[in-house]
Design a protein around this nucleic acid. Sequence first.
DNA 1: ATTATCTATAGATCTATAGATAATGC
DNA 2: ATTATCTATAGATCTATAGATAATGC
Lengths: 245, 245
Amino acid sequence: MTPQKPERSARPTPRAVAHSGTAKLGRPRASGAAKDEDPRQAILVAAAELFSRTGYARTSTRAIAEQVGLRQPSVFHYFKTKEDLLAELLENLITPTTQLLARLEVLDAAPAAKLYALAFGDVLNMASSDTNMTTLQFLNDARTERFDAFWALRTQLFDGYSKLISEGLANAVFACRKESIARSVVFGIADSVALWEDADSFEPYEISIEVADAILLFLLADKDDMETVRTEGLALIPSARKEAE
Amino acid sequence: MTPQKPERSARPTPRAVAHSGTAKLGRPRASGAAKDEDPRQAILVAAAELFSRTGYARTSTRAIAEQVGLRQPSVFHYFKTKEDLLAELLENLITPTTQLLARLEVLDAAPAAKLYALAFGDVLNMASSDTNMTTLQFLNDARTERFDAFWALRTQLFDGYSKLISEGLANAVFACRKESIARSVVFGIADSVALWEDADSFEPYEISIEVADAILLFLLADKDDMETVRTEGLALIPSARKEAE
DNA sequence: ATTATCTATAGATCTATAGATAATGC
DNA sequence: ATTATCTATAGATCTATAGATAATGC
């Protein structure tokens, strides 16, 4: 038993209604607070932040709501369940990378360059948005049916990595002792940014270069190809230079 | 609201008492079931497995107890709180590696070889015991005060990695663009085994070699040193050959 | 006397629903 | 009529404690 204070108490006044007079019930449309504009989006952002800091299970829907300036049940106006919230965060996180994969697959380029581009883009995506930064840490909370769609996307991504590795091996541009393990090593390195405690002390671009380099250095038969592969790989990502500096 | 069945129901008969007669209350010492010998240890094993499969928060103390053949409150005879259980698992996981670090620090060997040994031992430890396999996944559930001791150990380990990296750079045996990022990349790669979905399809020894190689290939100024460093590194770990297969 | 176990349960949540209310847009 | 919000609360857990009970070891 871990008694705490009762949950009803300081009611934070129904938000400062800026212009049109008295604060009442109902629907005080555009009010002050952090939620501004799109409450749904604000809930997602708040949830990502709280989940990251406190963990999924220990973050209550009440805490999320209050961070946004709403009362607890209002969250359920936008999301049917709490799991839906996490599912949407996870799918939002992985989707840009599966899209990148799809684009790369139809390009005519060396498998090593494509792999570099995929890893770079994957890490950049994870490291870029504050919201995403650590979302992947919640793999463990996402082990119920509700997350089947997310896991299907993850499998798709894993297969994408795997295929490029296979092609590079067929090429003899890559070398490894055991392909099945090499796949897991590579996928693991890409995801490992999710475990960084200090990811936000670095530029996403820097992080992405280092991690993608680490993956290629692991796989390349001739490590002297590194520079070339990096250049070719980055060239496959239109946005890479924008994000650069 | 997600109604389920009431939690009291099928009582699984107080365990088949093998020899000395009738099953009663109290203390049926050595009975059958899975817990055999040391219930405390059995609870740890069951918890690790259930936490891994289901997640820390979604695993109830009741589920742990029943897996071991006890009733829910009996868990609290051995562990004061549920957090204590996770804390012990996490500390058990990390301790062998901090000990390895301490041993390596007093050895007279090249920093690259020491780093190889540290990474190899770290990963081998994580990949070896079924119990440990995925324990690190719970970093997120371990963000309360109760886990300060664990986090201190983790910092110690991170610092150990960092120091070896620094020495290797001073040596010019290592090279990197930015030391602070390189540290995080290396630490991340070492931990990334915790994210593997399929770690148990491989030999721990194999996994450890590949991951340690990946780390060194990332850092080495001259990638042709890889073989030598690996040989020297493994030589620093007495048990390495035993585990080899 | 101590240790290990059990049954019963207090106390604290927490998610999600019900139903009221008000603003907005047609 | 619809949308967004609120208050109130049902219902389901879940952790941890209290207190009984029996076996063991001195």
